[in-house]
């Protein structure tokens, strides 16, 4: 077993009763990696995470961790930690007791336990709150308690369910930095589930984009952002102008339109970011239907023979009016090539 497949999911099929949530999933995760499972709700990312934790038994397939097959191992015997989206703190226990919970079950010596809990609380900056109850803490503080509670168990893999969704913008940035720091310092293998591409791009070493129980694409944030392989992923990371390609031509609602240059034959679709659309010159014409000022840029929604096109240009350029007809282009060199539509 190499470090690259520290955690491996092999042909994993997961179902709730008669509904299949994940079909035939294969994924290798390296030791110490920070992985994001990214996708819309219902794509199977949370189901996959819960099966790694042992809360859901797979219908078929295997899960291996650090060389051992843990597919049939009970949830309380895996070395896996989980920080729940709702934090799941024990309301009837103090912060100290919450963090100590798992350690108490292991029957380590009292001084050892106290040391580990205190260190755990200190590493998330909550030493002063040891005797408080969860209800007395803010959302961000509760999350850090949940994090400490899992970390003191020294799990082999730490799972986090939508760790930043419940936080306000500023707290989100703080928590993001916190998670990165904890992960780098401890070297733990971390997997988090999110529906927010911004979070995934900011935090992860690699992103696994999922849809309908299957993996759409695996890649580094740069790869996912710049070279999506399917229309879904392209749309997910902000390519607003996505087209299928047939016989080297763009498929639009008005019929196929030839591109200026030759499109490689294995390409199934092309996608342009709004910033990749050139306005003011080009082979196509469009009418401005809507415009909005976004600080550094100005966004335009155009009615065109290709359908609706979203463009974004520097705000310094002279603005176009609603109703104006302007030429534009979709330069092939600015497009992302999609292998699947």
């Amino acid at each position: 077993m190499s470090d690259a497949s520290f955690l491996s999911l092999e042909r994993l099929t997961l179902a709730y009763g008669d509904t299949t949530a994940v079909k035939d999933l294969n994924l290798q995760i390296g030791r110490g990696e920070l992985i994001a499972l990214l996708g819309p709700s219902g794509c199977g990312k949370t189901t996959t995470m819960r099966s790694i934790a042992g809360l859901l038994k797979p219908k078929a397939g295997a899960i291996r961790l650090d060389g051992n097959d843990i597919t049939r191992v009970a949830a309380n015997k895996r070395a896996v930690g989980l920080v729940f989206q709702s934090y799941a703190l024990f309301p009837h226990l103090t912060v100290f007791e919450n963090v100590a919970f798992g350690l108490r079950l292991k029957r380590i010596s009292k001084p050892e336990l106290e040391k580990r809990v205190k260190d755990g609380l200190q590493s998330v900056g909550l030493s002063r709150f040891a005797e408080r109850r969860p209800a007395e803490l803010s959302g961000g503080q509760q999350q850090r308690v949940a994090l400490a509670r899992s970390m003191v168990m020294e799990p082999k893999v730490l799972l986090l369910d939508e760790p930043l969704s419940n936080l306000d913008a500023r707290l989100r940035l703080e928590m993001r930095a916190e998670l990165q720091r904890v992960q780098k310092e401890s070297g733990i293998t971390m997997i988090f589930v999110t529906h927010d591409q911004g979070e995934a791009l900011a935090l992860a070493d690699r992103i696994v984009v999922m849809l309908d129980g299957r993996i759409e694409q695996i890649g580094t944030p740069e790869q996912i952002y710049n070279t999506p392989v399917s229309a879904f992923v392209a749309d997910f990371v902000g390519f607003e102008n996505v087209f299928a390609v047939e016989d080297g031509k763009l498929k639009t609602s008005q019929g196929p339109i030839a591109q200026s240059k030759n499109v490689p034959s294995d390409v199934a679709g092309l996608a342009w970011r709004p910033t990749a659309v050139t306005l003011g010159k080009g082979t196509y014409n469009g009418t401005v239907r809507g415009t909005s000022f976004a600080g550094r840029t100005r966004e335009y929604l155009l009615d065109t023979p290709l359908g609706a096109i979203k463009a974004e240009v520097d705000a310094g350029m002279p603005p176009y009016e609603i109703g104006e007809s302007i030429p534009f282009d979709l330069p092939l060199e600015n497009a992302a090539h999609l292998m699947r539509y």
Binding site: N76, L82, A88, F101, G102, L105, R149
Partner: peptide, 8 residues
């Protein structure tokens, strides 16, 4: 679930 994952 949290308790089970912590070893219960």
């Amino acid at each position: 679930e949290a308790a089970v994952l912590l070893g219960c």
